[in-house]
Design a binder for these strands. Structure first.
Length: 316
DNA sequence: AACCCAGCCAACCGCATACGT
DNA sequence: AACGTATGCGGTTGGCTGGGT
């Protein structure tokens, strides 16, 4: 990046020679005043540029290369706590600079969190439809192949239904609102190729899909779940094997919110679960810890998402 | 082979604050 | 107290690069 000199001061990428001059000067004389340092060292750079080059690149102890999982976890936690206070975050990571962490957050982490249906800014699950308007098409694509929402996972629907036994009306309303948001998100983010593949489904499959993603239908499903015999409402039976992002621990209580945050550091596509809510029976309830293979709606949905992910088609 | 495009990241810019006179 | 300068910080830019067409 070579930019045109302004007032005779060079800008843009630093050359090896300039780096050597700066290092040698600081090793001999220390840092001191940057504008003065620049002149005395014979560098045709402004002091600010010298300071930045030294602090972000040349200073001894600067770590280069990818971030470890531990560093990444620390960054996520501190970002959640401090916001975009890059220098404060960097102070907790020896050898890392604020600039490097900022770049890391704005590229790798952003992509990763989107894939987890998580707001890159707040690190909370995406429920703000306004955010979707700021995403690129590629990011929409990324989001669309992610585990959009815990309610995409029938385990969560089931657990939410069980929780209805103990939660109050306000929380029920919140759940219903979240489901409506999910439905709207789907309308927005499902990319054309995925919609196209819906054409390959049978009418029955489409009907069931529609029911599942229609908030009113979904509400009635939840209502239906509450009619399941109390003998079956043993939450201990719910052992969720599929990892997924925590939705919102403050709103929805239940066993499905514990110890199931995504630990996978790669961008693997979370598996969806195969359960047909309409044919939910006692036996299926008892075997709910597994993922039945014979429930075609969610098998179909899982296949669709996987197919979509494998295509990796960016909409034009 | 040539072109396009998106992601990466070093470096710049502008503002706020600290510091010295 | 007021002013000028240096420094710190966070947002933004733009050249480079690799992958796709």
């Amino acid at each position: 990046m070579v930019k045109s000199p302004k007032n005779g001061v060079k800008k843009g990428a630093w050359s090896e020679q300039e780096d050597k001059i700066l290092i040698n000067y600081i090793e001999k004389h220390g840092k001191g005043n940057w504008p003065t340092l620049s002149k005395q060292a014979g560098l045709n750079r402004c002091g600010k540029s010298c300071r930045l080059r030294w602090n972000n690149y040349l200073k001894p102890g600067i770590k280069r290369g990818g971030f470890s999982e531990e560093e990444e976890a620390t960054i996520i936690a501190l970002r959640h706590e401090l916001g975009n206070k890059w220098s404060r975050i960097a102070s907790q990571l020896p050898g890392r600079t604020d600039n490097e962490i900022k770049n890391f957050c704005n590229t790798h982490l952003r992509k990763k969190l989107l894939r987890m249906s998580t707001n890159p800014q707040t690190h909370k699950p995406i429920t703000d439809l306004n955010l979707l308007g700021h995403l690129s098409q590629a990011e929409h694509q990324l989001l669309s192949v992610s585990n959009l929402h815990p309610f995409m996972n029938p385990y969560n629907l089931k657990a939410a239904a069980l929780s209805l036994q103990t939660i109050n009306g306000n929380e029920l309303i919140k759940i219903q609102i979240q489901m409506q948001i999910l439905q709207k998100m789907l309308q927005i983010v499902i990319p054309y190729p995925l919609q196209y593949t819906l054409g390959n489904l049978s009418l029955d499959q489409l009907t069931l899909l529609n029911q599942f993603f229609d908030p009113l239908q979904a509400q009635s499903m939840i209502a239906d779940f509450t009619n399941i015999s109390p003998l079956l409402l043993n939450q201990q039976q719910l052992s969720i094997s599929e990892p997924f992002p925590c939705f919102d621990c403050e709103i929805i209580p239940g066993p499905f919110l514990d110890d199931h945050h995504v630990k996978d550091s790669e961008y693997s596509l979370p598996s969806l679960v195969s359960v047909n809510p309409e044919s939910f029976t006692v036996n299926q309830m008892e075997s709910f810890t597994g993922a039945p293979d014979n429930c075609y709606v969610f098998n179909a949905w899982e296949n669709l998402v996987e197919e979509e992910a494998s295509r990796a088609v960016v909409l034009s």
